[in-house]
Design a protein around this nucleic acid. Structure first.
Lengths: 245, 245
DNA sequence: CCAAAATGTCTATTGATCTAGACAACTATA
DNA sequence: TATAGTTGTCTAGATCAATAGACATTTTGG
């Protein structure tokens, strides 16, 4: 690649960060698979048309993320590569789809509360605004790396023990089952991507400027009655969403 | 909101850009719907814990995007709000779902070529690697703003006139129909989000650091035979994807 | 062992970003 | 028509980002 890769100046995004983003993309595209190493700093500096020190800042940031590791005299090795694929279908169950991609799945309940339904959530769940909901805040990780964080809402009158059951069973599917709901399906999902806010940065252990995909979805029982509204944020550089229709 | 909204320093993303991103998000969340205006610069400066000039840089950037307009003495008004919602289902047709959200939809053929199928595309289309494909490069816009850009691939032996038909008819559905394919469905979609590269920045008229959602999908005829592989990049701050299951 | 190639460290300088303060210009309203 | 509240403009200084060059340190391979 003798071509000059363009980075833009005076845009509020430092050159070293633009370059870090581009290299991260190249890594996940497999552009460096032949050697398992990032090209030398001097080569990258020339490709991007910047000083070598600027490239070094970019590589240092990727090192912080645990994506590469530099060894003096040898070069900069790639230590991690792929995104985990998360399936979205009528019957998405968190742990099922991820099972083969990561060795160990962890879910952690950050907290729960009883809250009145906002207009938006009430409409999605087909209940009246102000009805009481149980809110669960959870973080899920694969092999120790945070992958997603969720806010989930359940009608308290139908699932009064949601928080307790979830914290014991560690799974929403099992918590539903323990309260008499054996099966449910996803009825709608909306996805947006945006920059992570401060809370997401810390919960998902991301570096500033990172991207999250937010999926807003509604699950319903087999009679079509909504049982759950949730907003899940995925760390975009660790996950891809697979839609199954 | 008396709470201090956190912005982070020394992260390679200028404060004014972080603040612009946060305000853009607040606008699309409807946080300012009561007044239709952004809070005064002095208030924002206090909320974010920065100098008023820094907030002014952020608002100037949003002004460039056409999102807000400042009027001396009055305040800064919101001139545009929502993300366009793009439906993804078995029967997604580009123009249908968008019809009610934007007044005028434009699609432009950037170019076309005959290319051999890469391993990945060959597998998706269930053909042998190296088979000839027609590649279409298109950009779509709503009310003059670019919304998405696509690379689409079709088997040349089955749809030899794809480029000509598309450039005449301006629609893939119609181009299929003109070549004897009356109906088709989406069979798989994968979505990732990442920072836009230089080509995407210029084609979609984005500012550096902006986010694109990339949807990679396969369409098939009613016999299940794949007819199209496409990679579409959506400007993340202008679009949301609605999954219909 | 030596040379080439790679990363690590240091200094100095320039330009972009952010802060700070003061004041002008304009709008709405009491 | 004052006056409070808001955006617009200017100046000056501090901090961060990027360039430039020199040289040290480590690894690899001839």
């Amino acid at each position: 690649m003798a071509l000059k890769k363009v980075v833009e100046r005076q845009t509020g995004v430092a050159l070293w960060r633009q370059i870090a983003d581009r290299i991260r993309l190249s890594i996940s595209n497999g552009d460096y698979d032949a050697t398992g190493m990032v090209p030398p700093e001097t080569v990258l500096a020339q490709e991007f048309g910047v000083n070598r020190h600027t490239v070094r800042s970019a590589l240092a940031a990727l090192g912080e993320e645990g994506l590469v590791r530099a060894v003096q005299g040898r070069g900069t090795m790639i230590t991690r590569k792929d995104r985990v694929s998360y399936p979205i279908s009528r019957r998405t169950r968190f742990s099922q789809g991820l099972g083969r991609q990561v060795k160990e799945i962890g879910t952690r309940l950050l907290g729960h509360a009883e809250v009145p339904a906002s207009g938006e959530i009430a409409a999605a769940l087909a209940i009246s605004p102000g009805s009481l909901l149980i809110e669960l805040r959870t973080v899920s990780s694969g092999d120790g790396r945070p992958l997603s964080m969720s806010f989930s809402y359940f009608p308290v009158d139908r699932f009064p023990r949601m928080a307790e059951e979830y914290s014991q069973l560690g799974s929403i599917t099992k918590a539903f089952a323990a309260q008499g709901l054996d099966d449910y399906v996803r009825v709608s999902t909306e996805i947006v991507a945006r920059h992570a806010d401060a809370d997401e940065l810390s919960q998902l252990k991301l570096s500033p400027g990172a991207i999250v995909m937010e999926a807003q979805s509604v699950n319903a029982d087999l009679d079509g009655k909504p049982v759950e509204f949730s907003r899940t944020r995925f760390a975009a550089d660790r996950m891809k969403l697979r839609i199954e229709t």
